[in-house]
Design a protein around this nucleic acid. Structure first.
Lengths: 218, 218
DNA sequence: ATTAAAATTTAAGTATCCTTAAATTTATAT
DNA sequence: ATATAAATTTAAGGATACTTAAATTTTAAT
């Protein structure tokens, strides 16, 4: 185990790489809510520790070593999330923050034991894949951003972004969970909002909200 | 939540006060495995934060504020220990270190939820009492140090010291658990060792080992 | 009561990770 | 192509929590 700060940088970079987003100083600073200068400082350290490839002003990449380490942290995080949700009974919008703290404080033995208890899950409560011990990642089903779904089409919720608790809490309140069937009834160009059907309710949601929800179409 | 270091100082001081041991720089340094100079430094900070009463060269005492905070940390630690032992199935000698990390990374909501799952336990897997949310402490049954038990007397294991994993692991291996009946068969002045009966086995244990085990006599 | 040993504090310095402000480099718009 | 905006880095500095070495105070032994 290294320090918490290193672990946070690595897992942010890892998640950005997984999302095919170019990793730059700026975006790391925003994700971690610290100054760009602090990020530059730290990138040099991570680089000299062989965890990332870094050249001034260029994009950042994890090395094999950095990626392996990051996968361990992301794995811990997502296993904790399921555990907290399923075994402890914490709601959707609480598990992320709690897991974010716990991920830095748990031994591999504990994580493995919890994983076993959960019967080796592949996806966390938000639909994100859980890296295996060897760093391999369960394949995500193809999904469509809800904001791109056309009027009349329907599908099941397969993943939601997990970075905003207010968003997650709102989803819970409107009954939107993983696996729920959603039909797009109408789309308003005026404000990019969507009229969707969940269960027997029809709800209007903003385009921004929709863009954080991913659907398995058909 | 303050920082981890502060929490570690406070819970060590708290545990020393509970054991009626005078709290001095030296003993804190030993418990936390850091230099005396570092402890002096930190004591000044804790004092200026109103968490302890501190005068140069004098004994240290928690203030009300410090004691309340320490009780929260000790509570978190001991609740995690039971959870890890009973729910997750970690062995006796693993729960302390794991709980020691987790105690700094868990919200009150999580601890309360776990406490509820465990049905409001009063003692942790080593027999130590769990401070309640209001800081009150379940009363310990009167106990006798095993090294003080006379030949022929017997009783049940009610508490063991939890600071050495090798010790705890050894207890597990000889089948010594909380609640087990122990009879003192013989004591050797030569090396202060004891011959004890546990279950149907007779074992010789050192005086030092015995002094870390506490018995409910009769 | 005096002295030696032990405990404690002070002093000076280090590593980590952050800050703001200024300087530099890169990207974008026309 | 060049000006301007945006991104990034450098520089200087701060808080935290350590370290070792030296100085001081307390404790314990005789």
């Amino acid at each position: 185990m290294k320090n918490i700060s290193t672990e946070n940088y690595l897992s942010e970079i890892y998640k950005l790489e997984q999302s095919k987003i170019k990793v730059k100083t700026n975006i790391i600073a925003k994700k971690l809510d610290i100054s760009n200068a602090a990020v530059t400082d730290m990138l040099k350290k991570l680089s000299s520790n062989g965890l990332i490839l870094y050249e001034r002003y260029k994009n950042i990449q994890l090395t094999k070593k950095g990626k392996d380490y990051a996968a361990v942290i992301v794995r811990r995080h997502r296993i904790w999330e399921i555990f907290l949700n399923q075994i402890v009974g914490l709601p959707w919008d609480k598990v992320h923050d709690e897991a974010h703290r716990l991920e830095h404080s748990s031994s591999d033995e504990l994580i493995d034991r919890i994983e076993e208890m959960l019967n080796y899950p592949e996806f966390d409560p938000h639909g994100d894949p859980i890296p295996a011990k060897d760093g391999s990642i369960p394949k995500l089903k193809e999904s469509t951003n809800l904001s791109k779904v056309k009027i009349g089409e329907w599908g099941k919720v397969i993943r939601v972004n997990d970075y905003d608790n207010e968003f997650l809490n709102y989803l819970s309140r409107i009954g939107l969970k993983l696996g729920k069937k959603i039909t797009v009834k109408d789309k308003l160009n005026f404000d990019n909002s969507l009229l969707i059907k969940i269960g027997d309710k029809q709800i209007n949601i903003s385009g921004k909200l929709a863009s954080n929800i991913f659907i398995d179409l058909n």
